[in-house]
Simulated scan of single mutants.
Amino acid sequence: MSKVPIVEADLHAYVDGQLPSGRRSEVEAYLAAHADDAARVAAYAEQKRALHGLYDAVMDEPVPERLRLPPTPGAGQRWLGWRAAAVVAWMAVGGVIGWSLKPGSAPIAPDTETLARRAAVAHAVYSPEVRHPVEVGADQEQHLVAWLSKRLGGQIKAPVLTEEGYALVGGRLLADEAGPAAQFMYENARGQRLTLYVRRRDAEAGETAFRFAQEGPVGVFYWIDRDFGYALSGAMAREDLQRVAHAVYRQLNE
C-alpha cells in the first residue's frame, strides 16, 4: 500500500470517480478503518445525487438569448468554451430554467420564485450532512436566533415543531443574492429533515399566500409576510409538508 496519506482532495475525487484504480483501493481501505470519514464521504455522495436530481435536466436546455454573444470570426472552439462558461455562470446566479411549479399553480413573481429555488438548493446541499449539518446547534438556540436576526436586520425566530414531530437541529447563515439569509434545520425520530429558509423580502414584493414548488424530490412551501420571505423545504409528501408549513406560519404570526 502507498505511504501517501489520504487527504481531503482524495475523498472528493473518490466521490467524483476521479481516482485511478490503485488510489481508489487505498481510499476504500482508509474509509473502512475510519467510520467518521466514511460517513462524511457518504454525505458528500448524497449531496451529489441530490444536486444532480435538481439540475441535470438544465444542461439539456438551450442557453438563454441574453447570454449569447456572437462568435468572432475564427473563434471556433473558443466560442464553445465561452458558451459553456455562460451556462455555468447562469446556473450559479440562480437563473435555472428547470424550475417548475406544481401543475395548476399560478405564475409567480421573480422574487418569490428565487426564494423557493434557493431554499430547495440549500436543503439539498445541507440536509444530508452528517457531521456538520448546521453552524450553530440547538443547544445554543438563543445565540443562534440573536445572531441570525442581527445579520438579517430584523427579528426572526425558530419555530417549535415538537407537536409536528420535529426537533430543532440548529441553523446557519447563508449568502443570498439579496443579502444574508438564514436556514433552520429540523429532524424527526426517523432522521427525516426539514429546513426553513428565511431572507429579507424584496422592497417591491407584496405579501403572498402559500405557494408550492416541486423540484426533484424536494418540495417547498413558501410565502412572503411582512419583512421576510419564508420557505419550508423537505423531501416528503406534499400534504405532510403543508401541515408543518401551516404550523410554522401560525407561530410566526402569533
Rank of each mutant, 00 (worst) to 15 (best):
residue 126 Y to K: 02
residue 126 Y to M: 09
residue 126 Y to V: 08
residue 127 S to V: 07
residue 127 S to W: 00
residue 127 S to Q: 04
residue 128 P to C: 04
residue 128 P to A: 00
residue 128 P to F: 02
residue 129 E to Y: 06
residue 130 V to C: 08
residue 130 V to N: 09
residue 130 V to W: 06
residue 131 R to Y: 09
residue 132 H to I: 04
residue 132 H to G: 04
residue 132 H to S: 11
residue 133 P to N: 01
residue 133 P to Y: 02
residue 133 P to D: 01
residue 134 V to A: 09
residue 135 E to T: 06
residue 135 E to Q: 14
residue 136 V to E: 02
residue 136 V to R: 02
residue 137 G to K: 07
residue 137 G to W: 01
residue 137 G to T: 13
residue 137 G to Y: 01
residue 138 A to H: 13
residue 138 A to P: 07
residue 139 D to M: 11
residue 139 D to N: 15
residue 140 Q to G: 05
residue 141 E to W: 02
residue 141 E to N: 12
residue 141 E to L: 15
residue 142 Q to A: 15
residue 143 H to W: 10
residue 143 H to A: 15
residue 143 H to L: 14
residue 143 H to I: 12
residue 144 L to W: 01
residue 145 V to T: 05
residue 145 V to Q: 00
residue 146 A to D: 06
residue 146 A to S: 12
residue 147 W to G: 08
residue 147 W to E: 05
residue 147 W to I: 04
residue 147 W to N: 12
residue 148 L to A: 07
residue 148 L to V: 05
residue 148 L to S: 06
residue 148 L to Y: 04
residue 148 L to C: 05
residue 148 L to I: 03
residue 149 S to P: 00
residue 150 K to E: 15
residue 150 K to Q: 13
residue 150 K to A: 10
residue 151 R to P: 00
residue 151 R to W: 13
residue 151 R to Y: 08
residue 152 L to I: 07
residue 152 L to G: 00
residue 153 G to S: 09
residue 153 G to H: 01
residue 153 G to W: 09
residue 154 G to S: 09
residue 154 G to W: 10
residue 154 G to L: 07
residue 154 G to E: 04
residue 155 Q to V: 12
residue 156 I to Q: 03
residue 157 K to Q: 13
residue 157 K to E: 10
residue 158 A to N: 07
residue 158 A to P: 03
residue 158 A to L: 06
residue 158 A to S: 14
residue 158 A to Y: 00
residue 159 P to F: 10
residue 159 P to E: 06
residue 160 V to S: 08
residue 160 V to G: 03
residue 160 V to I: 11
residue 161 L to K: 00
residue 161 L to N: 08
residue 161 L to W: 01
residue 162 T to A: 11
residue 162 T to R: 13
residue 162 T to E: 12
residue 162 T to D: 13
residue 163 E to S: 14
residue 163 E to V: 10
residue 164 E to I: 09
residue 164 E to T: 08
residue 164 E to L: 07
residue 164 E to G: 02
residue 164 E to C: 07
residue 164 E to F: 02
residue 165 G to D: 06
residue 165 G to C: 03
